[in-house]
Design a protein around this nucleic acid. Structure first.
Lengths: 341, 341
DNA sequence: TTGTACGCGTTATCAG
DNA sequence: CTGATAACGCGTACAA
């Protein structure tokens, strides 16, 4: 006689509860949900049976029955270990949680194919909405799903070939703001150091620099763009060259915070008076004492979640298309607090 | 005659596909799943009908029918915006994804009650496993769920009153390693600056310091412990006091990276020769040029996921109890690379 | 106040 | 090879 408890038992059903309580399934259901039109005594019996068994309603069955869409939101980011995307997820989670929506999170690793698989899996789970940091070239295959009522919003960059909302930072305007800040500090020769132009945000920032350079009447030869910079070391090297050339620059816009660190190191080690501003906004930049745009990923994430929810509540509303999140410098110092970790 | 397409249609079912293909539901099912024992022609018809309708199998229904446990893993962390927990989630997600498990992520905000609600919600979804960074005082209520086959593992700190695995860093041993490193550099008076002892990891580190101080025969009056330090500023202030007192310390162990930043600032501004080592391992500490223990949250997360999966595959295996992740100094410099953000 | 019959979308059984 | 029919766990409609 093997002990029954050794094998993993499955979850008790409403029928089990009803059996123990000596009532019908429906009565048990009534007690556990509506709790109306039920005599005190039977209610008590059912409650006791439920707690005795540790009964927990099966959400799959419920949702299947009612035809309700699940309150699951699928989110896909490139890489959770990256503080930017983690912040995105954090902001989204907080906002969704307020509305009773749960977050199913996956990482695409910037791989379009993997992303497609993940999205398929999420759709099979009948998620109510999708928040995507796009890594693929074509999202037209989501058109039908959208018409079926699955809310879709792209975050941080737009999703090609799908008429859905996208919440992105105002990369171009942000760069212009950076330039203006340097101009206000009487800089004359302002350079941009940027990442690989294949990265959408980087290309936007380069584009923004070019446009602002034109409208601010800066001489391109005196205000160069250095691209393909994707490590701190490369950034430092690039900055040194700009600072040591015959006609050195006196202002540098760093297209992201890692670049800012390299640039700050170069400026400091050369004892240069060159001004530096940066685009991203991680703690690291702050620690280097470089003014940075308030590019708060949590805000981007919660904005995206908000827009997703508006669409869920009002599926027929027209798309907003590309929503730009304006960026400006934050002047107050950050306050960092330790945590449980 | 309102256009039918204006209202959000619901998802097509297998019956819809079967109807269009002119076959029975089961045949359609066979084609889409097993794809065996079906004539080429009918298979083709079904395939076409399916793609025409954009059919996507409903996982809720499937899991309900087969009684399969979902391949959902619920994870609860304190705060996703904190790089440590984000790293935890990242490591877990990567490992789970390898095994075809999806991650349902939620944040407790270090609130035990909220955590309880989240866990209930996850269990209603019939998650297959739970990864919890505990914020509550008592997890005995999960005992039944565990017996039902829900795998449970605690991460970063142990979960009280439940006989489940927990994957935690070797906080005490890590502190001893820090001290030894300073001793090797001929430090005599070594202080610990730590966070609030109510935080489990902080208390462990304080405890570890006390023990190591004893075994290394350090005089407690010369090797003090400063607690309740939870901001950079407080850490800097505390360090200044230790460095300016009559008998100043010549070695400081920072109990986490934020404290390390404050301490490093103090040491630098005073031009002191005091050595500093730190516990945590965020990029910030690296940038301050303070040796830190390799306290990699992603590793912790993937270890936890691995242990969860072992338990899923072998539910009857005995618990490992508290699994300590050893920590040591990492000597190679970090390489930081920019990203899409 | 309570119970019965049915349906959600899927798969399994067992017959044709 | 194919198709009715039952069943998963739950909620709704209607009847008792």
């Amino acid at each position: 006689m093997a002990p029954k408890s050794s094998a993993p038992q499955s979850h008790p059903t409403l029928a089990d509860v009803a059996a123990i309580a000596g009532v019908s399934v429906k009565t048990a259901s009534r007690v556990l949900n509506e709790s109306m039109n039920v005599s005190e005594m039977t209610a008590k019996k059912v409650q006791q049976a439920a707690t005795l068994l540790g009964y927990r309603s099966n959400r799959l069955a419920r949702e299947l029955r009612t035809g309700t869409l699940s309150n699951l939101i699928g989110m896909i980011v490139s890489d959770l270990a990256n503080p930017f995307y983690a912040g995105l997820a954090s902001g989204a989670e907080e906002e969704l949680s307020k509305n009773g929506l749960d977050l199913l999170l996956a990482t695409s690793r910037d791989d379009g194919e993997r992303e497609r698989l993940l999205i398929d899996s999420l759709l099979e789970r009948r998620v109510r909405g999708l928040m995507i940091v796009p890594s693929a070239e074509d999202y037209s295959y989501l058109h039908t799903e959208r018409k079926r009522g699955v809310a879709i919003v792209f975050v941080d960059r737009p999703g090609p070939y799908l008429d859905a909302d996208s919440i992105v930072s105002d990369n171009q305007g942000g760069i212009a703001t950076c330039i203006d800040r340097l101009l206000a500090q009487r800089c004359k020769n302002i350079a941009l150091i940027a990442d690989n132009a294949k990265i959408w945000t980087a290309s936007q920032r380069i584009e923004g620099f070019k446009k602002a350079r034109l409208t601010r009447k800066l001489d391109p030869s005196q205000s160069p763009i250095v691209g393909e910079i994707h490590t701190i070391d490369l950034a430092e090297k690039a900055a040194r060259e700009l600072l040591l050339q015959k006609n050195p620059v006196d202002g540098i816009v760093a297209s992201n915070d890692l670049i800012a660190i390299g640039v700050a190191h170069a400026v400091a080690s050369l004892g240069s008076q060159c001004k530096v501003v940066s685009f991203d906004d991680f703690a690291t930049s702050k620690l280097m004492n470089v003014p940075t745009l308030d590019h708060d990923p949590r805000r981007l994430g919660s904005l995206a979640a908000e827009s997703l929810m508006r669409r869920i509540k009002n599926p027929n509303e027209k798309n907003f298309g590309e929503v730009l999140m304006k960026l400006d410098f934050r002047e107050e110092p950050i306050k960092v607090v330790t945590s449980n970790a």
